Simulated assay, not measured.
Amino acid sequence: MTTPLQLPRGPVMVDVEGFALTDAERARLAHPLVGGVILFRRNFESVEQLKALTAEIRALREPALLIAVDHEGGRVQRFIDGFTRLPAMRALGDAWEADPAEATSLAEAVGEVLAAELRACGVDLSFTPVLDLDWGRCAVIGNRSFHADPAVVAELAAALVRGLHKGGMAACGKHFPGHGWVEGDSHQVIPVDERELADIRAADLLPFARLAEAGLAAVMPAHVIYPKVDARPAGFSKVWLETVLRGDLHYDGVIFSDDLGMEGAAEAGGFVARADAALAAGCDMVLVCNQPARADEVLAGLTPPAQPKLAERLARMAGQGEIADWRERVASDDFAALRAKVARLSTPPAALEGPAVGEAC
C-alpha cells in the first residue's frame, strides 16, 4: 500500500475527468498547492463507484484533500441514482407560506439527508445553501433561492445548515453579497448590479449576516460587479471580502472563489492572474474547474500570499464522523423515514426547467 504524502492542504481546488483517477490526475493532486477536489456529474456512475473514487483521492494525501460537490437539489444535484432526489429550495419557501414551523423542519431534514448521503460516499462538502434572494430577475438563480424575503431565506437556510451539521457536513453560503438582482448568468457573462451599497445591505446581505453570526463555515462570492461599491467582481474585491465580509460581518470562515473558468471571472485576466487576484482580495481557496490545462497553468505560475489561517480554516471544512458510520446511518430504518419525508418534497419536472447550471458553482 502506498504511503500517503504528508502535505498540508494548499489553496487550489481542481477537478477530475471521469470515474477513476488517471496517472496525470494523481500527479496533479500531489502538487503542494492543491488542497481539494470538486466532483461533478461526469464523475458519478454509481454509489459504489463514487465510494471507490473518493477513497482513492483520500489515500493520496495526509491530511486528505477536501472533496466537494455542488449538490443543492432541484436543477443542481450532481448525483442522482442511489441518492434521494432533493427539492429545489423554492419548495421550502413555498412550504413556509403554508406553515413556517413545518417548513423549518423540512429544511433541516433536507440538509441532513443531503449531507449524510454524501458523507456515506466519502464527500466532505457540498457548496450549499444558496442565500441569494429571488427578485424574479435572475433565471440562473430562480428556484434555487428559498424566497424573496431575506428573513425567510435566513430562517430556512439556518435550518438547512443545522441539518447539514447533523449529517456531518459544514455549509457554504453563496453567492456573496447576492446574485439574485442581476439578470445575467455569471457562467456566461459578467453581470453588473447597479444598486447602492445601502440597498444591498438592506436586503441581500441580511441572510449572509445572519448566518455569519451563527458561525457559517464557508462563503462563496459572486462573479458579479457592483460598481457603486467596487469596480471589480465581488470575488476579486478587497472591499467586499475584507471590508464588508471580514470587517463589517466579522466573518472568519473559509472564502472559496467561484470557478475561475466562468465568464464572470474573465475581467481579472488569465487564469494565473485570476487566482492571484482572488487570493489577494481575501479568498482562501480558488476553484479551477473543467480545464485541466488551465489548472496546471495555475499550479505552475501561482505564488500564493501568506495565508496563516489557511490550514485551520480548511480543517473546519473536512467532513465529520467516520464514513463507515455514515454508511450504517443511511442504511437505517429511521433514515429511510427521513428520506421519505424529503422525497415527498420532490420538485415537479416542470420546476426543474430553466437555464442549465453548468459544471461550475
Rank of each mutant, 00 (worst) to 15 (best):
I67A: 09
P292D: 06
G142R: 14
A212P: 08
S46G: 06
V298W: 01
E194G: 05
V113W: 13
V219L: 10
G354D: 03
R41G: 15
H71P: 12
V113E: 00
G142I: 05
H31L: 07
P227W: 01
V152G: 02
A331L: 02
P32G: 11
R313E: 03
V244K: 03
Y226N: 01
A103S: 03
E97R: 13
E72T: 05
F208R: 07
E312V: 09
A340Y: 07
E297A: 13
A306N: 08
L125S: 08
D132Q: 03
I323T: 11
G270C: 12
R201A: 13
L125P: 01
R26T: 02
F208M: 14
M89R: 15
A218R: 00
W181V: 09
A351E: 14
V14A: 02
A20R: 14
K309C: 08
V239P: 02
L302G: 09
L279I: 13
D284R: 15
R137L: 09
V161T: 08
T84Q: 04
F271R: 15
P11F: 03
R339L: 04
R85F: 12
I255A: 08
L5C: 02
G168F: 02
A340E: 02
F83M: 06
A300H: 07
M13K: 09
E242T: 05
R75W: 00
N143H: 13
D185H: 01
V192D: 06
A154I: 15
R313Q: 06
E353H: 04
C172V: 15
E56A: 15
A218W: 08
A212G: 14
A109S: 05
P87T: 02
W96Q: 00
L86T: 10
T54S: 10
A280V: 11
A217Y: 11
K238A: 01
G167F: 12
F83S: 14
M169V: 02
A171H: 01
A157K: 09
G136M: 00
H147N: 12
V298I: 09
E56C: 12
P191S: 12
A311E: 00
A139L: 14
V254P: 07
I80T: 08
A158V: 08
F79G: 12
I190C: 13
C172K: 06
D259Q: 06
G235P: 04
G282F: 13
G269L: 14
A324S: 07
A351G: 03
G163W: 04
A324I: 08
H179V: 05
T104Y: 14
W240Y: 01
M262Y: 01
D204V: 10
C283N: 14
C289A: 07
G168N: 12
A88N: 08
W96M: 00
M317N: 04
E267M: 07
V110M: 05
N290D: 01
T84L: 10
L33T: 04
A295K: 04
L21N: 04
M285L: 10
V272W: 13
H250S: 02
P221C: 10
E155I: 06
P304S: 06
A351I: 00
G10D: 00
A55F: 04
P348W: 03
I57N: 06
A202K: 10
D70I: 08
R344Y: 05
E112D: 10
L106T: 11
V113K: 13
P233H: 00
G163K: 03
A103N: 03
A158W: 15
